[in-house]
Design a protein around this nucleic acid. Structure first.
Lengths: 223, 223
DNA sequence: TAGATTGTTAATCGATTAACAATC
DNA sequence: TAGATTGTTAATCGATTAACAATC
């Protein structure tokens, strides 16, 4: 029974950690010695208990009446997420979304970096986008081997997603951050995380309709 | 008691609906008369029960032994999400991510359209990005009124997010699709949906670390 | 001491999955 | 009829919230 007991990581906690990290870093510049959940929720709008539970899972203790030491928390979050050591990834598909990701400044703060970008469009090859050179996909296998990169963000058109993903896996990649709307079929030991923009839009428009319905109900009851 | 009973919308179902919509549309081109959950899960990898529950919430019935009529489902999903009538929105912040959203083809399929984009960078004003003209933010209030647009996607730098959001609300906007890492403080009747890219990265890198840990465990037990 | 806070255990809520009945 | 499927009710799982004890 090699370490089988502790199975309870809250995935939503992990989703929230970067938000804590952002606010903590900002507040830390003011060089405060302690920060309480009360202060945190003034910026993030979570329930106080939720924050304390989230922070508790980092394993670093707060001090009653005072709160937590911000830099301790910051380190603990970075450690927990593995954002303390630099992660290098390839970007495949240097279109609109791909370009946006290459230009996304915050990644540097999170210890994440795109070291090369790939495309098949001859017009793009050889050009630089936000300081990252765009290469032809045919060069990917060789470069991946030489640079030891085995993680990639996938921002190709949906119809090529599966083929490109398979190619990546065949070349030893074991982590794919999938920004396409395609559900990828991959070996079980490959980590794949789907971003799903359409799902976000669905939720947003649904909330809008709900609001509209509520408003209509109020209007009719008001006369 | 005006219609208070039925409070149980599954938000995760809503998130998944676009995935069904995509596959259904594609399969519908093959002009099949019926499609079963068995066929759907060959493309999407959800549990069969989950699919049936999701589809059940649309209120349209399937036929035993056969499945569902794809075009019926398509219409029902569009209706359910409000994607049958065109939604017009402004985009505020024509940087990398903003540009990517303007160029995102799928939005058209979802009945969603950006009719104007705004920025403060003089170098961008007047130019067109993916067919959408970029205007100075100062023109936003007037245009919003004239065009009747009250929904916006927010892709400005984090430090301006709150100010711009407040400005939007002051000008009658009631829907904000927030792509910044900032948690916005807005009146309760304003619908705000956060996209949170950093949270996605956190989840992805966490899964990667988990995989690495598992692999290390396997390696040591293998010798 | 009184009060603000952490931190934990139990209760609740929401979503998924299991079991199975219904039926074409 | 047998078999594949829909569709529903109950069980389970995971995450949030409520209640409260501990303490500086």
């Amino acid at each position: 029974m090699t370490e089988t007991g502790k199975r309870t990581v809250n995935l939503q906690t992990i989703r929230r950690l970067p938000a804590y990290l952002n606010t903590l870093r900002r507040l830390n510049q003011a060089a405060v010695e302690y920060i309480s959940t009360t202060e945190l929720i003034a910026h993030l709008k979570y329930e106080p208990v939720l924050v304390r539970k989230d922070l508790a899972s980092l394993g670093i203790p707060g001090r009653q009446r005072l709160g937590y030491k911000p830099d301790e928390l910051i380190h603990a979050i970075e450690e927990y997420l593995g954002w303390n050591k630099d992660g290098e990834a390839f970007l495949v598909g240097a279109g609109g979304l791909g370009g946006a990701l290459l230009g996304y400044r915050k990644f540097a703060e999170y210890g994440f970096k795109f070291v090369a970008a790939f495309d098949i469009d001859p017009a793009k090859i050889g050009k630089k986008l936000h300081g990252v050179e765009i290469l032809h996909v045919s060069r990917l296998p060789d470069l991946a081997k030489r640079m030891g990169v085995r993680i990639a963000a996938l921002t190709v058109p949906a119809e090529h997603a599966q083929a490109v993903a398979t190619m990546l896996v065949d070349n030893g990649f074991f982590g794919i951050w999938n920004f396409t709307s395609e559900e990828l079929h991959l070996p079980v030991d490959v980590v794949c995380h789907n971003e799903n923009l359409a799902g976000g839009l669905a939720l947003f428009t649904y909330k809008l309709r709900e609001r509209a319905a509520k408003e209509a109900a109020n209007d009719s009851s008001a006369d």
